[in-house]
Design a protein around this nucleic acid. Structure first.
Lengths: 149, 149
DNA sequence: GATTATTAAATGTATGTACATATATTTGTC
DNA sequence: GACAAATATATGTACATACATTTAATAATC
């Protein structure tokens, strides 16, 4: 559906405004698709992202700082997202022996198993970006990088 | 900065994943830019968006349903965002005479004045999308529409 | 016209975002 | 080694998101 119809707006001031609105709208759209998917597994999107970072580190631990560095949203509160994952026993949290200010966070066996099930489910799930050709996806990345220059 | 460096990830599985992450990241980046800007005026981004819809309706009222229809994020809670605007006396809220279930929401004189100041400030503010050429912005919109097909 | 269904908005609860502040630990400096 | 500065994380608060439930008014059906 064209963006004008999605938000029931007749027209945009110019193509800049249209692209801007379209970008925000499409990102929300994608995230909502994903959220619904992860919900089946009892995870939110930020929780999934952190879990995936922890799997990338496994079996080495990650600190909160490392999580923040790698998260898409730097200002979100990694500490409290880890709280939720810990409550579900998907991660473990232990004071780092070599630096007692820091906390070593590791994905648990349960967490690894859950991500395994998610991998399988995601493989059979087409997310929106795949409506593009690979060349178009690359082109899109180029345009997005230019926006943030 | 390239997206790989922004989130300190060495590489992506393919250009689909890269475009997907880049899209979410860039949308967040843009929204944070805007948030900082609106904060100077005591508004959050959703509050500004609702205020702008109300100006579009002015002097006719809008209902909560109409606001939701036109909002970028359909699932957000328009009712409570209007609460905040009402507390700042930027909008008025009155039971609709012809349908007492509905509520007529209108932008106040204060609200119009605030948007007026924002218009002026925004005119002298370059937001990220303007790093693109107009043709690139149009191309971006086309790609985004295709994602949501 | 009483009863049920639908609609419009508000409210409740859990989670996340954004930002400031607090607490504990480590590092640097005298 | 005492004391200040820096670092790592946690906590507090306001706002927003996501979704279920509630309340009130209107519409539909018998």
């Amino acid at each position: 559906m064209k963006i004008e119809d999605e938000i029931k707006q007749a027209a945009f001031r110019d193509d800049y405004q249209k692209a801007h609105v379209n970008l925000i709208f499409t990102a929300n759209w994608l995230q909502q698709q994903q959220s619904g998917f992860f919900k089946q597994f009892g995870l939110t999107l930020p929780q999934f992202n952190i879990l995936r970072i922890l799997r990338g580190q496994h079996p080495r631990p990650a600190t909160v700082n490392l999580l923040i560095e790698r998260m898409l949203d730097k200002t979100s509160n990694a500490s409290r997202i880890v709280d939720k994952l810990e409550a579900k026993q998907l991660v473990t949290r232990r004071v780092c022996p070599s630096n007692r200010r820091a906390v070593d966070i590791r994905i648990s066996e349960d967490g690894l198993a859950l991500l395994g099930r998610l991998d399988a489910a995601m493989a059979s799930q087409q997310f929106g970006v795949q409506n593009l050709t690979l060349a178009e996806a690359a082109q899109l990345s180029g345009l997005l990088d230019k926006i943030r220059d």
